[in-house]
């Protein structure tokens, strides 16, 4: 084997080892999301939808929300606004990856751009090489491994759900898995706890909690829980952004720096 081959192999191995912590998390959480989708959709096509949505959304929260959206028939507008609010941070991540991805060919760059997640980004910024061909290749394999774990996990979960419903009856599976949808609540609680470990995230989290609770409370008072839950997302996000703009002098790290 020639030297170039050997360096390539060691680079791929390095990327794989670095991605191992993500392997368990993505496959397990993906499996549960796929299972929930199959239980909700109830058709054999769930596996196809699981594979396609996980490949293109590349997001845990969105994958879980998908199940709720299908159940409720949430308007596309609300799903798009929520996607923007959840994923706008990836635009900021991208800024620090501009140089790292420069050496990649266009198709590879397009793929790496589309597969950035919190975990993949964290691993890519830890890349042991300075920006250049090696670093780009390493980042590409990280993206590929993480993406693969997620798609395989979600699709396997959906297949498991389909097979379970085929072997037993749909009603039987539904009664055995009753309450499993709490996994979505638990996922958001866990993400929130992790974010609140960083002091700068605490005020934004409290703003989000208060604003959305007020919106839900207000809507429930006038229209009942069901209508309030279905229509709370957009007004909550508008209120959150308005509060952020109102308190910018206190919260914006760049403004605080300028004032000091």
């Amino acid at each position: 084997m020639d030297a170039a081959h050997q360096t390539m192999r060691s680079l791929v191995r390095k990327a794989f080892v670095a991605s191992l912590p993500v392997l368990t998390g993505y496959t397990t959480m993906g499996f549960a999301a796929g299972l929930l989708l199959a239980l909700q959709d109830g058709t054999a096509a769930s596996a196809l939808w699981a594979a396609l949505t996980s490949a293109f959304f590349v997001s845990g929260p969105l994958q879980y929300l998908l199940v709720d959206w299908v159940r409720e028939g949430t308007p596309y507008m609300a799903t798009v606004v929520l996607t923007i609010c959840l994923n706008i941070r990836y635009s900021l991540y991208g800024l620090s990856l501009l140089d790292r991805f420069k050496a990649a060919s266009v198709p590879k760059r397009l793929y790496m751009i589309g597969t950035v997640t919190d975990e993949t980004y964290a691993l890519q910024t830890q890349c042991p090489w300075p920006a250049g061909l090696k670093s780009t290749r390493y980042c590409l394999f990280l993206a590929l491994f993480d993406h693969l774990y997620w798609v395989v996990g979600v699709t396997a979960g959906a297949l498991a759900g389909i097979f379970a419903q085929g072997i037993f009856s749909r009603a039987r599976v539904a009664s055995c898995t009753k309450g499993i949808d709490f996994a979505m609540t638990a996922l958001f609680l866990v993400i929130l706890v992790d974010q609140m470990r960083s002091k700068t995230n605490r005020i934004p989290a409290v703003i989000g909690l208060t604003a959305s609770a007020l919106v839900f409370g207000g809507l429930s008072y006038f229209r009942g829980f069901a209508a309030a839950k279905g229509s709370m997302l957009i007004p909550s996000m508008v209120l959150i952004v308005c509060v952020f703009l109102a308190v910018r002098t206190y919260l914006d790290p760049e403004r605080k720096g300028a004032a000091a």
């Binding site: 929260p61 929300l65 709720d68 929520l82 609010c85 959840l86 706008i88 941070r89 635009s91 900021l92 979505m184 609540t185 958001f188 609680l189 993400i191 929130l192 974010q195 609140m196 995230n201 605490r202 934004p204 989290a205 409290v206 703003i207 989000g208 909690l209 604003a211 959305s212 609770a213 839900f216 429930s220 829980f225 309030a228 839950k229 709370m232 997302l233 909550s236 996000m237 959150i240 952004v241 952020f244 703009l245 910018r248 919260l251 914006d252 790290p253 760049e254 403004r255």
Partner: peptide, 23 residues
């Protein structure tokens, strides 16, 4: 500024959303 603050706020909102679903 907004992009940097939004993620924790939206996740907190989604927690409220989940409990709204329970209600």
């Amino acid at each position: 500024y907004i992009g940097g603050q939004l993620a924790p706020a939206v996740i907190a909102m989604l927690v409220v959303y989940c409990f709204a679903d329970c209600l």
